[in-house]
């Protein structure tokens, strides 16, 4: 054989070896990945839960319930008033999926009860809740949380101490609020501070101080951290806890002595429920110690169950001047009006 041909063949062989070597390097072979099949806990039923708590929290609670009972929880989540609106519309259309509802608006539950849309159920766990936090047989406070102010302590040395401090010129244009149209907590704070401080307060705050409106709590917190605002005029205590304690940011809460609007997040079974058994089981779970503990651990909101200890590091309710609506019915009735008012006042800002 010609020497050149032989060497050429050898070179070819060498190249082939290296090519094959590369080809066989693990990872270089594009084998089709087999499909992954995911299985979950076998279900024995399902319940639909309308809620305003964050989805991630709702999922976990649902998971805990499912793992315990095997009942799958279908979560319909949205902001408070959107959920309310949806539910109301479904009920009106007599086509609701909701089995259980938990939103941060006591007024909605008053309304639903008054309209006969709440299932009466004598849960064993009612007894664990104080009177002011339940309507036995119909609803109980799944969670409660207070509304405070918050600031970035890395930037602000002298934050406001009172709600009225927000009216200080210093804070003009530097205050952030949540959208009252969707957030039940914003309505609650508006209502209770209006009761406490009068509409003037809000008028000034909204019209003169030119606050910025944010549609999600995370957006508000983010604006605070980024310095777009100096003060979050509406910030929940559990959010402060989350950002300060859990996330270890420089957000710090301000708990005005004149009062902390306390928002309830009740839970009730919709009378139209198609899954009563599952709904009652879920209702019980939410009010059970495990459910309450879970809620507390997940949302950092207060469990109003007497036997459930608060989270470490969160201000004790006993140390706060909690503001409650004096008349829950009025609270419910004034909802639309006060929201319009808020909007109107806000529209007036220069």
């Amino acid at each position: 054989m010609n020497k050149s041909i032989f060497i050429a063949l050898l070179m070819l062989f060498w190249g082939l070896c290296f090519a094959l070597s590369y080809f066989f390097i693990p990872g270089n072979i594009n084998k089709p990945k087999p499909k992954i099949i995911v299985n979950s806990t076998p279900t024995s039923g399902s319940v639909t839960w309308y809620t305003s708590i964050p989805q991630r929290h709702a999922d976990r609670i649902a998971n805990a319930f499912k793992i315990k009972t095997g009942i799958d929880v279908k979560i319909i989540r949205g902001s408070t008033f959107l959920i309310k609106e949806r539910l109301m519309s479904e009920i009106k259309n007599n086509d609701t999926w909701a089995d259980v509802i938990t939103i941060a608006d006591i007024g909605t539950f008053i309304e639903l009860k008054n309209q006969g849309h709440l299932m009466e159920y004598g849960s064993q766990y009612y007894k664990n809740f104080p009177k002011k936090y339940k309507d036995k047989g119909y609803w109980a406070a799944f969670a409660g949380f207070g509304m405070c102010m918050a600031y970035d302590e890395s930037r602000i040395d002298t934050p406001p101490q009172h709600w009225t401090d927000l009216l200080n010129e210093r804070w003009r244009g530097r205050i952030g609020l949540e959208d009252i149209n969707t957030a039940g907590s914003q309505y609650g704070q508006y209502y209770m501070l209006r009761e406490k401080l009068g509409v003037k307060f809000w008028e000034k705050l909204l019209s003169i101080q030119k606050p910025k409106i944010y549609y999600r709590t995370e957006a508000l917190a983010d604006a605070l951290l980024k310095g777009k605002i100096d003060i979050a005029g509406q910030f929940s205590i559990h959010t402060v806890y989350d950002y300060k304690v859990k996330r270890k940011t420089s957000i710090k809460g301000i708990y005005p002595k004149e009062g902390i609007p306390f928002i309830l997040n009740p839970v009730a079974i919709i009378k139209q429920t198609a899954h009563l058994k599952e709904a009652t089981a879920f209702f019980d779970f939410l009010l059970s110690g495990k459910g309450q503990q879970l809620m507390q651990n997940l949302t950092y909101k207060y469990s109003l169950q007497e036997c459930t200890a608060p989270l470490a590091g969160i201000p004790s309710l006993n140390n706060l001047n909690l503001l409650h609506p004096e008349n829950k019915t009025k609270y419910a009735e004034k909802q639309s009006e006060y929201i319009r008012e808020f909007n109107s006042l806000f529209q007036k800002r220069e």
């Binding site: 499909k35 992954i36 299985n39 806990t41 793992i67």
Partner: peptide, 12 residues
């Protein structure tokens, strides 16, 4: 001992 989640490759 209740299965929470499982994931597996198909046909293994």
């Amino acid at each position: 001992g209740t299965l929470i989640k499982s994931a597996a490759r198909q046909n293994i």
